[in-house]
Amino acid sequence: MYLYMNGEVIKEEEARISPFDHGFLYGMGLFETFRVYGGHPFLLVDHLERLNSGLKILGIQKSLTIVEVVKALQPLLEKNELDNAYIRLNVSAGARGVGLPVEPYEDAIVMMFVKALPEAGVPTEKEAQFLKISRNTPEGPLRLKSHHYMNNLLAKKEIGTRTDVEGIFLTKEGVIAEGIVSNIFWVIDNKLFTPDIRTGILNGITRSFVIELAKKRGICVEEGFYQPEILNSATEVFVTNSIQELVAISKIDSLVLPGVNGELLQALHKEYRLYSNKLWSKKEIMELGGV
Rank of each mutant, 00 (worst) to 15 (best):
T171S: 14
T199Q: 07
L170C: 03
K157M: 11
S233R: 15
L170A: 03
V165S: 00
A234C: 11
F193K: 05
V221I: 09
I180F: 01
N232L: 12
R162L: 01
L192T: 04
L154M: 13
I197P: 00
K157P: 00
G218E: 15
E223R: 15
T163H: 03
T206A: 14
E229A: 12
R207M: 00
I230M: 07
I159K: 10
F185H: 03
E178D: 10
A177Y: 10
E222C: 11
A177T: 10
G224I: 09
T161V: 05
D189K: 02
L213V: 10
A155H: 04
I180E: 06
Q227W: 07
S182G: 03
S182W: 00
V175F: 12
E166R: 00
I176F: 09
I180A: 10
G167K: 01
A155S: 11
E212P: 01
V210S: 04
N152K: 12
N152M: 11
K191G: 01
G179V: 08
A155K: 06
N203D: 15
T199W: 05
S182M: 05
I201C: 14
P195D: 05
I197V: 14
E178K: 02
A177P: 08
P228E: 08
I184E: 09
V175H: 11
T163L: 06
K157F: 03
V181S: 13
W186D: 07
I176P: 02
P195A: 03
T199R: 04
F169A: 05
N232T: 12
W186S: 08
I168N: 00
V175I: 12
L202R: 12
G167C: 02
E229V: 08
I201E: 09
N151D: 15
K215T: 14
V181E: 07
R162D: 11
E166T: 01
P228W: 06
E158V: 04
K216M: 14
G179Q: 03
V175C: 06
A155L: 10
I159S: 09
V175R: 13
L202I: 07
I188K: 12
E222Q: 15
L192W: 01
I184N: 09
A214M: 09
L202W: 04
I159W: 04
E212F: 01
G160L: 06
E158I: 04
A214Q: 11
E222Y: 15
K215G: 10
E158R: 12
R207Q: 08
I184S: 09
F209R: 06
S182Q: 02
T163F: 01
E222V: 15
F225M: 11
W186R: 09
E158Y: 05
I211N: 02
F209C: 08
L192F: 02
I211W: 00
T161H: 02
D189M: 00
A234S: 15
P228A: 06
F169T: 04
I201A: 13
F193E: 04
I184M: 08
G218Y: 15
I230H: 05
L202Y: 04
P195C: 04
T206L: 15
R198M: 11
I184F: 09
S233C: 06
L154W: 09
I201Q: 10
L213R: 13
T163G: 03
T161A: 04
D164V: 02
N203A: 15
T194L: 06
Q227M: 06
V187K: 14
T199N: 11
M150I: 13
T163V: 04
V210C: 02
L213D: 07
